[in-house]
Design a protein around this nucleic acid. Sequence first.
DNA 1: ATCTGCATTTTTACACTGTAAAGTTTATCG
DNA 2: CGATAAACTTTACAGTGTAAAAATGCAGAT
Lengths: 195, 195
Amino acid sequence: MADQKTKTRHHHGNLRAALIEAGIDLLSEGGVEALTLRKCAARAGVSHAAPAHHFDGIDGLRVAIAEEGFLRFRKRMLDFADAGEQSPRGRLQGICKGYLAFAREDPALYDVIFSFRANSELIEQVQVNAAPAYQVLRDTCAPLVPPGTDPLVIETQVWSLVHGYALLNMTGRFGACTPPDDAVLALLDRIGIAA
Amino acid sequence: MADQKTKTRHHHGNLRAALIEAGIDLLSEGGVEALTLRKCAARAGVSHAAPAHHFDGIDGLRVAIAEEGFLRFRKRMLDFADAGEQSPRGRLQGICKGYLAFAREDPALYDVIFSFRANSELIEQVQVNAAPAYQVLRDTCAPLVPPGTDPLVIETQVWSLVHGYALLNMTGRFGACTPPDDAVLALLDRIGIAA
DNA sequence: ATCTGCATTTTTACACTGTAAAGTTTATCG
DNA sequence: CGATAAACTTTACAGTGTAAAAATGCAGAT
């Protein structure tokens, strides 16, 4: 019995999923500041204290939202990789474009995903949820790792580059004179080649 | 008269500076969540409504804190650049090390500095405050820009790389197996060279 | 020197948020 | 059918930002 993972029982049905959905909507509509336990509860049609039985406070909800966010993040990267040129470097370009697309399409969700800090108590669970998304980047980098090089070095170079570029865009750093994505993506072609 | 910029008059003295100082202390002690108008006021020994006459709400205080933060950020980069090898690439390595040092020494202040988003109403003032810090990076990159290349391309590559690496560190991405800084800094030597 | 004006600060008040505790409803199972 | 537990509501409280009004005290003018 009770085989369906998200059971639709009791009063509301599956409140947990509804709250996560409401939270993601609030984020896309009003940014990180708009994400509130009470507003999520109101959208789901329950009292403001109901979420307490499904999440460990507002941070617990944010972790759950990040879990769903990482799923979408991963999907976006894979979609772009599958749609582009099917060479190792073509796929790397693809996932980086998907990376940027996700950040631009839902910047608040992107912010939530990367809002947990290393000293947080929640960081371990967030890392578990993030692992499949990072694995995409890892797999895509793998064919480009030169023999004798630690894969972590290549992965770190790629992640840092695209992550930093996405953030600099979101912080409005470039203002009117925004560089084209190619300015950064071109550097990808210099990663992992013999010096 | 009234030539001294931050005048020390009236009741408190210069409450504005005291509130900024209190805010920076709160950040380093308790992270971004600990930054509160009321706590800053309490530390400065004034009532909780006093800050309203010096800042435009909590966001106004955050902008002012970011202004001071960018000053310290700039100084940290210049200190590292001046202390290292005095070649164009040596200085670039220096400012990047200073960049990372600042982020690690005061992660919450670093977070505040880069917390304003492009759609914010405050972004223009933040950009003004940030300009001197970014100019350091710009000046350091200048000697490494190949003829015929837009300097913005080189700057963006360098900023994205170090900014992303700093953030990935702070989000605890690497966990136990943290790559050495050299894994990323080494890529700097491939920036701006002929393909 | 005193008085008036004004910047500064305090007091008071209110809405919103997270959270805890106790009570109520309802599904599930014996 | 009744007992039990899960889901949810109600109530309550502390902390936060913010606005408005009242009080304070310095500066310059008369």
